[in-house]
């Protein structure tokens, strides 16, 4: 009986192991960028294209962060181990969009002047929080490769990469602070609730999986 169940679980999500699965995800992750580049080139980003671009890239960073964090809960809840092979790519795309978000801010808003950026970080706490999140994200991206994993050792690597929880908190704080001027928190709450649920789901699902094993 147990063997039959195990067989079914292994069969579930088999298609995710197909060779085209990762290139497909890669292409999908690039689609928002392609859409934005086209929008900028065709002057379809509205009256303030710089602002539209900076904000859209921030939105996509948050969305990819949510997608990255949904992988593990989904894998545990649905018992589809194959999902794990997409986590690193999603995490790196989160970093990629965060980098573009930061670069577009530095370029369009700050004219790529380091002095201006430094003054802005000192002036606006939400910029400081965003920068802190990005710094941490950079650290995780830089240690996402197999060699870095081996070098750090599994346990230390895992501890370091739990930093993604802090990144999620900082990212939502960054967004919340940005919207605070308009008292308009509807979208912030959606992302905040989603990320909180995803983070809370992990220990719950792990414990359930642990209990079943025992």
């Amino acid at each position: 009986m147990a063997a039959v169940q195990g067989g079914r679980a292994a069969a579930r999500g088999q298609w995710l192991l197909a060779r085209w699965a990762r290139p497909l995800l890669f292409t999908l992750c690039l689609a928002p960028l392609a859409w934005l580049v086209w929008g900028a080139a065709a002057d379809r980003l509205g009256a303030n294209p710089a602002e539209a671009l900076i904000r859209a890239l921030g939105d996509w960073t948050l969305r990819l962060l949510c997608l990255t964090l949904v992988v593990t809960p989904l894998r545990l809840a649905l018992k589809v181990p194959a999902l794990a092979r997409f986590r690193r790519m999603l995490g790196l795309f989160t970093f990629f969009y965060a980098l573009l978000h930061l670069l577009s801010y530095a370029w369009f808003d700050m004219g790529l002047e380091p002095g201006e950026i430094a003054r802005d970080i000192a002036k606006r706490p939400f910029i400081l929080v965003g920068m802190a999140a990005f710094a941490l994200l950079t650290l995780l991206a830089a240690t996402s490769f197999n060699r870095a994993m081996r070098w750090l050792g599994g346990r230390r690597w895992q501890q370091l990469h739990r930093g993604v929880y802090l990144i999620a908190v900082l990212a939502v704080l960054h967004f919340w602070w940005m919207r605070a001027g308009k008292n308009d928190f509807a979208e912030v709450l959606v992302y905040g609730a989603l990320l909180a649920a995803l983070l809370a789901a992990r220990p719950l699902l792990r414990r359930r999986a642990g209990l079943q094993k025992g």
Binding site: D43, A47, A50, F108, G111, R119, K123, R124, F126, G181
Partner: peptide
């Protein structure tokens, strides 16, 4: 209190890379 007022972006001026 939350941002500088020293510069401004003129809407519609020279596209994305226009200086403030």
């Amino acid at each position: 209190p939350r941002w500088s007022q020293a510069t401004e972006r003129r809407i519609g001026e020279d596209g994305l890379f226009a200086k403030r």
